[in-house]
Design a protein around this nucleic acid. Sequence first.
DNA 1: ATGACGTCCTGCCTGC
DNA 2: TGCAGGCAGGACGTCA
Length: 275
Amino acid sequence: MPELPEVETIVRSLQPRLTGLNFVEALVTLPKVIRTPGADDFKEKISGKKIITISRRGKYLLFHLNEKLNLLVHLRMTGSLVYCSPEEAVAKHTHLIFSLSNGYQLRYTDMRQFGRFSLLPNQALHELAGYKDLGPEPLEANFTAAYLKKELQRRRGRLKPLLLDQTFIAGLGNIYTDEALHRAKINPERQVSTLTPEEATALHQAIGEVLREGIANRGTTVRDFIDGNGQPGGFQMFLRAYGKEGRPCHYCGANIVRKKIGGRSSYFCPACQKN
DNA sequence: ATGACGTCCTGCCTGC
DNA sequence: TGCAGGCAGGACGTCA
């Protein structure tokens, strides 16, 4: 599931391949993946547009095109965007194929069909539900420990669901949230209001660490994730909590447990991360 | 306003 | 062995 480090990895792998190329044509075989405008409009409007650059915001990929247009992509759970030769066999669950001006293709494959594409002018982008209310980027300088402390004070409820809330922090998903909480030694069910300043500082530190290490290792491939060249990531080798049910804790050796919190599987050490 | 829950979707895993 | 059913999960809509 592409979270911030995986999306960043995709951006970095596609950027040198796609910058300066034009979209020639879009072949849409599953129209519902086009969120806005309609699939027909989408195909017509994207044809001939030039890719100026590619960036990331939270878990969104953003293709900046000429004529002030943006192609916004959210890969959700199982989506992938791969740059390849038109001669390569088309993978199962491929729903969208862009032909590029150098003869290559950019293909969108998504087993669960949850991913979505939007083609929007600059202004409409910042009015789009889900995008407009994104919280701060956790690797940007303005996401400080002091900021996190202050924001935690005005929120209620359990910590983990809050960290997954994209309007609170943009880009964290289930994997990196569990890893950050484990490193900070904070229980995912802790009531937000009970966090001490020291814990908030530790959490801030841990979030930065796991995201930076995730990016340095080109993302986490538990099952599906591949980058823009079709290559898996490497951070799964370094996971300490996520998916480690029954395995010894990196810090104390106690068995990692799994528990549903807010409808999501959460992995944590019951000894290090006491509630 | 806020939190909880259902929805989308397919492949994999479990249990009979 | 084969099949049915449950589970996984990000974001968003709906409901309380």
